[in-house]
């Protein structure tokens, strides 16, 4: 019984980390948004149809986010030519610390400021980090809550990049 309880606890922890979405044909479209990034350039999700989008909600005060962001930036360099587009949405209240962290981490991706409306649009961002993988057809392939299994996420991205 104790063993079963422990196994359930482990299973629950695993379930928390990754919430894969349904099969490709039944996936929901990713909610549309247009935001200006920290450099003043418009980021229009709809215009990215045809690419695989990694949409990461983060904040400067979120420890696990600081671990993930450099990896996402590296993926942008590695897989950008294959069609990956990484977008970082900061859930900070102010832009100044976000600019500082983006500079410090040398983030090679558009960084936009989020808000409660965008968080709600994406099913509630009530704990960070949250990462969405959006397929080339604009549908949500995965929502990953909490610190991601980066190796697993990279495999998922490679698979999505392979889908035309």
């Amino acid at each position: 019984m104790l063993l079963a309880g422990m196994a359930m606890a482990l299973a629950a922890q695993h379930a928390h980390a990754q919430k894969p979405q349904p099969h490709q044909s039944t996936r929901q479209p990713a909610p549309q948004f247009i935001r200006k990034d920290l450099n003043g350039h418009a980021v229009n999700l709809r215009a990215l149809k045809g690419k695989v989008v990694l949409l990461n909600f983060w904040a400067t005060w979120c420890g696990p986010c600081q671990v993930e962001l450099p990896k996402f930036s590296a993926w942008q360099k590695q897989y950008g030519a294959s069609g990956l587009k990484v977008i970082a949405v900061s859930m900070d209240d102010e832009a100044a610390p976000v600019r500082a962290v983006a500079r410090k981490l040398k983030l090679d991706m558009p960084v936009v400021m989020g808000d409660a409306k965008l968080g709600t649009l994406y099913g509630g961002v009530l704990g960070l980090p949250v990462t969405y993988l959006i397929a080339r057809d604009g549908t949500v392939a995965a929502r990953i809550e909490g610190k991601a299994d980066l190796a697993g996420m990279e495999t998922s991205i490679q698979k999505l990049l392979g889908q035309r």
């Binding site: 005060w61 859930m91 900070d92 209240d93 808000d115 968080g119 709600t120 509630g124 961002v125």
Partner: peptide
């Protein structure tokens, strides 16, 4: 915690008191 997250959702009746950090 975060003002933005408070705006998104918070415990009914609670007040925003600023990020402790």
């Amino acid at each position: 915690g975060s003002r933005m997250m408070f705006a998104e959702s918070h415990i009914a009746g609670s007040q925003f008191a600023g990020p402790g950090v």
